[in-house]
Design a protein around this nucleic acid. Structure first.
Lengths: 340, 340
DNA sequence: ATGAAAGCGCTAACAG
DNA sequence: CTGTTAGCGCTTTCAT
């Protein structure tokens, strides 16, 4: 509740102690130019002496900036949270923001009530923008945020004509390339483990699989397509199912690295030799590098790049970024055209 | 930046539209008693019509409450983030808060700069309290927070005489019980895979192991103690090392479930029969239930309880919880005495 | 029951 | 360069 603990000094007290006006103190703590060096020093001494820390709520109210961003995980079943994909993304966004004054806030959205709470939190001005990961096709959250004018960036699209700014990989092309690789190295009966059908990314990777098969003139059997949910466990189960229902397969394309790892485990547990009996390739395995139009908002894997791309896009959506945001490091951006 | 988007209505505009004073609107949105029903209705209509959402910064500034809490992960090497332990804790805290208006904010603290940023964020009044998980012995963060009067709760202690409020399990007793169980079922050469030596929880579990061995009159060899870091990978490696350095072992106590799982994998990969050749038990496997003094701040596993316990303790540390906090569900509290 | 008024602590525009 | 002056939008007495 922060019941003004006696001993939480205000800017005014600092000003008094330093013998200057409030404006000057404000300039000093914001590193604004145009303060005599001796004055600045005096103020800094007063700040140190009092142990002054700015009240962020007041600053936000007066300055219309939160110097914070939310990274939202909207995973209803929550299983994916522990998956490497998420930790990589979180780490990557954290890296992009680590040297700045911008505080990264991870939030969970599992229910409608939590969705509502987040919207109010964001609309309430406590963050300068929102990044969302793992968005399912029907999720209204991105629109709720974007409609009220909040800078919003998605990791992955909800559909082919996503209205909200997003960062995405070349899912169709990547999947096609991965499957083609399998076919080119002599595999014929290539199966696929898909992601959740309500996620556009899963649809795209499935399409890439089908296109590659078609181009190679191979008619995939229905039993060669098994559904997963991007988790390692689901990859394991899917592989077990494939082994049972389609023992003829000699290659597998998993729509995510994580599922590929799970599939490998199942294969080994079943005593199959990998890759001699069955070759496995996961989406993220495959290099998608291809520099093109830098204005496009799709990026290449690896995941490390994604955080930077999201932060950069967020920054571009902001009308008047604070100085904290200006410190965001603009690392090399590896951007490529999406073939979808 | 929230450059006051034209169309972000304020409480004042709501009041004008409803034909009432600002105070009344404030009372309505805060569900305060003492507002005539017709008035309340009129205000609610105005709110809906304008799509009004309170400015949280202003509310925080005026009301000295943030209605938000931070759950901090201070893991320098970040490997543990993906571990099930963390997702369980996060889920558990999220559950404790899901039906409330309190927003849960997960934050990462990996470097000193990030530590500093978090302290300023918290001191700045943006959260009502802070929960920390995975705190290493030398981490000054809890003190930095507690010293400025912020409600702070730790998950696990930094030492035997932790000064900050904490929630913890009976680590010594649990480890002792687990190891005794192994010894009671005929195992003699029981090894242990420890956690990071700079974490008190790891020291306690190691002590429990030693005490159980001593009580059983078994002198553990030096090679029977291998160091892990609580991750599944480290459990795997540790087990592999044990197999090589101490092939005589017939039981293993891992200081965490996660490491136990890793150890099992290594055992199977080595073709050892489990549990016939080697039995494995992880800390969290073992039931520690034991109701005693409800004033103590230590709780029993399972993890689901931990979030509730942390939130409850945080609430107790707050001088004047807001109504949002009052909605926190007080679930049954399973509390037990710590034997350490 | 409800309106009016006084801040909460800070930023920013405006005078000097 | 620096002090002063307005607010930012809300909660909270204090009257009425």
């Amino acid at each position: 509740m922060l019941r003004r603990r006696p001993g939480t000094p205000t800017l005014e007290e600092v000003a008094a102690l330093a013998g200057v006006g409030r404006g000057t103190v404000s300039r000093v703590i914001n590193n604004a130019a145009g303060v005599k060096d001796t004055t600045r020093r005096a103020v800094q001494r007063a700040i140190a002496e009092l142990g002054y820390v700015p009240n962020l709520a007041a600053r936000t109210l007066a300055g219309r900036r939160a110097d914070a961003v939310a990274l939202v995980m909207t995973e209803p079943d929550w299983r994916q949270f522990g998956e490497p994909f998420f930790s990589e993304i979180v780490r990557s966004v954290g890296d992009a923001l680590t040297e700045t004054e911008v505080q990264l806030l991870l939030t969970l959205v599992r229910t409608d009530a939590e969705r509502q709470r987040l919207v109010e939190y964001a609309r309430g001005g406590r963050v300068d923008g929102v990044m969302l990961m793992s968005v399912h096709a029907a999720d209204p959250l991105p629109d709720m945020l974007a409609e009220v004018g909040l800078p919003t960036v998605l990791l992955g699209r909800r559909s082919g004509d996503e209205s909200v700014t997003y960062v995405d990989a070349d899912n169709v092309g990547g999947a096609r390339a991965a499957v083609s690789h399998l076919l080119d190295t002599g595999r014929r009966a290539v199966a696929t483990i898909t992601g959740p059908p309500d996620m556009y990314v899963a649809q795209c990777r499935l399409r890439g699989y089908r296109e590659a098969m078609e181009r190679a003139g191979v008619e995939p059997r229905g039993s060669w397509t098994v559904r997963g949910d991007f988790s390692a466990d689901s990859g394991h189960h899917a592989m077990a199912e494939l082994l049972e229902r389609a023992p003829e397969i000699d290659g597998v394309f998993a729509a995510s690295d994580t599922m590929a790892a799970g599939a490998l485990g199942a294969l080994r547990a079943a005593g199959r030799r990998v890759p001699d009996d069955v070759a496995v390739i996961g989406f993220d395995d495959f290099p998608l590098a291809q520099h093109t139009d830098p204005k496009l908002t799709t990026v290449r894997q690896p995941l490390e790049e994604i955080g930077h791309a999201m932060v950069r896009l967020l920054l571009e959506e902001m009308e008047e970024p604070s100085t904290a945001w200006r410190h965001v490091i603009h690392r090399t951006e590896l951007v490529l055209r999406d073939s979808a």
